[in-house]
């Protein structure tokens, strides 16, 4: 059992959860709950939204206002929730396929609007729930059930995508740094007052991805992520060649004076009412 303030945020009757033994997604849920507990956000004012997939089963386990939407659409639902009730703290969790393939359009536009939502992309490089098909983050050459000869599609860099689309907080960690995940998530949740925060957490799926790519045990993946993570400050001193295959972790964007969408919409209301 986790510590009391974290346990309070769990619908314990549904535990143990659906995820495979050792699944990185559990590490992420744990970090999100520690962050929410530390920030002491009133439980009734927390909304956890998700799309469809392994990642998106998370809201069911969290005792808050939870919204399990349709595949790829979580951020669009969450946009409506936030506009209707800007006081809610929304943590929107999604997978790499969910968030950047079928939901890619909603993702970039939520970034552009800079709406006060914390989007956590749980990137395990695969469609896990449907049986291991290639996703937009499956590395080139890696094997998947729909890439039996190795993935041919180039991958998305989710953080660069978010930055380019206008997110005002962008950071990355891997599940091999659980404490760092928690710290980044806390900042990203607080950033909701300033706008859209994207946290990519590189997770793993040993069951569907690992099995086909010589990393079939949880620990193989955990060590892979640990060994290949490079802090941004160090990465800044490295060459592109040296960074090949590495995962750069840290904070990439943090615009302190960004203006959040629902706040800016309040100004629209003021203008309309004055007219």
């Amino acid at each position: 059992m986790p510590r009391e303030d974290v346990k309070k945020l769990l619908r314990t009757k549904f535990m143990p959860h659906i995820w495979c033994p050792g699944c990185g997604h559990g590490i992420i849920m744990h970090a999100i709950l520690r962050a929410l507990a530390d920030l002491k956000i009133p439980q009734d004012q927390i909304c956890i939204s998700s799309g469809i997939g392994c990642s998106s089963r998370m809201p069911g386990y969290i005792d808050a206002c939870t919204l399990h939407t349709a595949h790829g659409r979580s951020l669009a639902f969450a946009t409506g929730v936030k506009m209707a009730n800007p006081g809610l703290t929304i943590v929107n969790v999604m997978g790499d396929g969910d968030g950047t393939a079928i939901g890619g359009n909603h993702f970039i536009h939520a970034c552009r609007r800079n709406i006060g939502i914390t989007a956590v992309v749980m990137n395990n490089n695969i469609y896990g729930m449907t049986g291991g098909q290639a996703s937009p983050t499956t590395p080139e050459g890696a094997f998947a059930s729909t890439a039996p000869y190795g993935a041919v599609d180039p991958t998305f860099d989710i953080c660069k995508l978010a930055e380019g689309a206008g997110a005002t907080f962008v950071a990355r960690a891997t599940v091999a740094q659980p404490a760092m995940c928690e710290q980044i998530l806390k900042k990203a949740i607080l950033h909701q007052k300033k706008g859209f925060a994207v946290v990519e957490i590189v997770s793993f799926c040993h069951t569907q991805f690992g099995r086909k790519n010589k990393r079939s045990r949880p620990m193989d993946n955990f060590n892979f992520l640990k060994d290949n993570s490079v802090m941004k400050a160090k990465a800044d001193t490295m060459t592109a060649e040296e960074l090949k295959g590495k995962i750069i972790i840290g904070e990439f964007v943090n615009i302190e004076d960004a203006r959040e969408y629902t706040e800016r919409y309040d100004e629209v209301i003021a203008r309309a009412q004055k007219a």
Binding site: P2, P21, C23, G26, I27, M29, A31, V175, P178, F222
Partner: peptide, 14 residues
């Protein structure tokens, strides 16, 4: 150090 606690995907450790 709480590393076991933080890393536990099943939140089973205190």
């Amino acid at each position: 150090c709480h590393q076991c606690d933080n890393v536990c995907p099943d939140m089973a450790i205190t």
